[in-house]
Amino acid sequence: MIETPGIPLTIIAFLLVIGPLIFIHELGHYFAGRIFGVKAEAFSIGFGRELFGWTDRRGTRWRVAALPLGGYVRFAGDMNPASAHNPTAEWLAMPAEERARTFQAKPLWQRFIIVAAGPLTNFLFAILVFMAVFAVNGQARTPALVATVQAGSAAEAAGLRPGDRITTVSGQRIERFEDIPAIVAIRPGERLGLEVVRDGRPLSLNATIGVEVERDRFGNEFRRGLLGISPGQPVWVEVPFWRLPGAAIEQTGNIVRMMVDTLGQVITGRRSVKELGGPLKIAQISGQQATLGWFDFILFMTMISINLGFINLLPIPLLDGGHLLFYMVEGVVRRPLNPAIQEWAFRTGLAVLLAFMIFVTVNDLASFGVWQRLAGLIG
């Protein structure tokens, strides 16, 4: 039986996921700007008409707007979409003291840090959550030894045997058994190289990963790669306090690597673009996770935070990564890019982002069965 959280809970859960994460992201920009003495004129959660807000003693307008699909910090002097160090007549007309507190007045390395601080704060949130999880529950560190091989599985066809120690999967080093499903699960149907140690001798094998279609309690279907092996008794170890940051950073890095792999699969056509989801899909899953309890909800929120950090670092104009790319070019050529080139790049970036949003929204509606129902009504 498919359980649904209902529209009110879905909306509330979505706002509880996306609102705080946008706030965290923009807070990274805001505090980095404050450290370097840049005045923030506005801190907005959402776009469009202001629903409510207030102005603090520093002159920053804190506002919540009607469309909660993003946010921004508007720094003093940030007068063009490229946020570049190109003097304008309006900027030059400012009093010297006021001009010194503008974004444009700051050295390149400070502007770079201010822009990078948003995505990095999303990653920091995930790291802190994983630190808390590992502190309470410990961390799974099961040896990468094959205990059993499932009959008829990809592992059996590849020649894996009980007692084999797997050291590498698809070129990625294996430290513990838990690393294996994380690599295999996102590669259904692909042929992967395996490096194993059998009776003390290294051995190279190839496996065509099996495909398993899973359906969760909400009716969502997932194609998952399956190798067909199981470990011995799972081993959970306590993580000493001083190792918590390293373990959490490693976990976050593994998730980012999985995102890079998945994006590469979509680009190369090995994974269907129909699997890409947008705000509507995030809202749906937010509601579903809310019915599973706070722990699952926070972990889902952590995954979305990593996604936000990763996506914002992509070198696409209008995203933080696009700004950072321009700053790196500026650092190499020792001067800002031509304003006309920046304007063209940002217009192109806006068009790309709008097209992508339309595409993932169509995907989301298709996953909800909207187009099928419309076709039935028309037919």
Rank of each mutant, 00 (worst) to 15 (best):
T208V: 02
F300G: 09
G118T: 00
F31Y: 15
G193Y: 00
R161G: 01
A32R: 11
P87M: 11
L365R: 04
F43V: 04
R141C: 00
R74F: 01
T60F: 13
G269W: 01
L194E: 00
G37V: 05
F295N: 09
H25K: 13
L92Q: 13
T208F: 01
V333A: 08
R224L: 02
G277S: 12
L124V: 04
L128N: 03
L325D: 07
G349S: 08
G379N: 08
R141W: 00
I12W: 06
S44W: 01
R176F: 14
N206R: 14
W62E: 07
R99L: 02
A154P: 02
A135S: 11
G200I: 01
L21V: 03
P245Q: 09
A144Y: 07
S170I: 00
G193F: 00
D78L: 08
G232R: 14
Q150K: 14
R347A: 09
I316A: 05
I298M: 07
L299R: 15
V196T: 00
L314E: 06
E98D: 12
G210W: 01
A82T: 10
E41Q: 13
T252M: 03
P202I: 00
R243G: 09
M1K: 07
K39F: 08
I378S: 07
A248T: 06
V129K: 15
E275H: 09
R34P: 07
D296T: 04
L145K: 14
D164V: 01
P68E: 03
A76K: 11
I267V: 06
F43L: 09
P245K: 10
L21W: 03
P188D: 08
S153E: 06
V260W: 09
G219D: 02
A96S: 14
P279F: 01
G71P: 06
F241D: 03
G219L: 05
L354S: 05
A42T: 11
M357Y: 08
P20V: 07
N206W: 05
L145R: 15
G369H: 06
K39S: 10
Q251P: 00
V370Q: 09
V329C: 06
G369D: 02
